[in-house]
Design a protein around this nucleic acid. Structure first.
Lengths: 164, 164
DNA sequence: ACATACTTGTACAACGATGAACAAAAAGCA
DNA sequence: TGCTTTTTGTTCATCGTTGTACAAGTATGT
């Protein structure tokens, strides 16, 4: 019974598996959301990755590149590529830490704060639009499920992330 | 009351908004899932995008590049980049359609089918792992929510997709 | 039949993300 | 103190994804 023993709980094909189907739907929804957000943000000349950065600087002023990368679940090198762009556009500032000369402390400029607020309104509106008709209580249940998954996955990956 | 009138239903900051928080969790879970899947697939020398292609060829033999791109919600040019790689590795075949000389019909080779089955088992196992402890009924509810969102977003984007 | 519009796949340049290798600074330890 | 190890940020080559422009084939309309 090593393989191909299709039953109700262990279906033959992945796409007959409820959890599999559910996850595919989640992934596709995310993909579409990103694409739609990209379009709606285009007139501000930023993309979802930039917005993620800006929002985190909005919340956590003075954060370091390392901490930012960890929050966004991306590599440090990624921040090293994107942040100088935002800095040149006058949206953020990078100041060296006094005590620890390795770290760069990040903060929004006034212009960056204005742009971030504009972009966040667009994002919030998009989320509301796409959830139209979905009860808040469902969202909360989904959030709980997802946070459980995140915890599980973080535990698996979390150890030994030399380059994150 | 144009702005910054924080109430229970219309909080001041996006991250106090239940739907916003919920969606951020979904996005992060997706991101982690992709990263974890990338690692678990690495010994097969394929990445999530390749697996998406292979699974769809497994389900829909003889599909065209256009149809495949539409199912995956990516551009046609993307398929033009990835498919030749898989073809050179002997995992798929591309045969020109007899009636319509523009379209290339795609199918898995035996080697491709074997590799796809292996990879699908890894993916299914990962999904099961990460959902550990989550009732199937929750998954079904999540799937319904996501499919509703997908429909809404597709309607918004769907029209006039010249290049998809 | 012919001209026009659309569809299918490709080529290309631009961009975000990744991991590896590296330099500088800090922390830990002998 | 001096040595090693870790941490922080950068650089670089690579890869997936995108949109535009393009060529070839098909459909439409007169």
């Amino acid at each position: 019974m090593n393989k191909k023993q299709a039953t109700a709980e262990h279906p033959h094909f992945p796409w007959d598996h409820p959890r599999f189907r559910s996850w595919i739907a989640v992934a596709r929804a995310c993909q579409l959301m990103q694409q739609t957000l990209t379009r709606r943000l285009s007139h501000l000349d930023i993309k979802p990755p930039h917005l993620d950065i800006l929002v985190n600087l909005y919340r956590f002023d003075g954060i370091s590149q390392q901490e930012l990368a960890r929050k966004l679940l991306v590599g440090r090198s990624n921040m090293s590529m994107l942040l100088p762009q935002l800095e040149k556009r006058g949206l953020i500032e990078r100041r060296g830490d006094a005590r620890d000369k390795r770290v760069l402390r990040l903060s929004l400029t006034p212009a960056g704060r204005v742009l971030t607020e504009e972009a966040m309104e667009i994002q919030t509106a998009l989320i509301d639009d796409s959830h139209r008709g979905a009860p808040i209580e469902d969202c909360i249940r989904i959030a709980e499920s997802m946070e459980r998954m995140i915890a599980i996955l973080l535990e698996e990956n979390g150890i030994d992330d030399r380059n994150r």
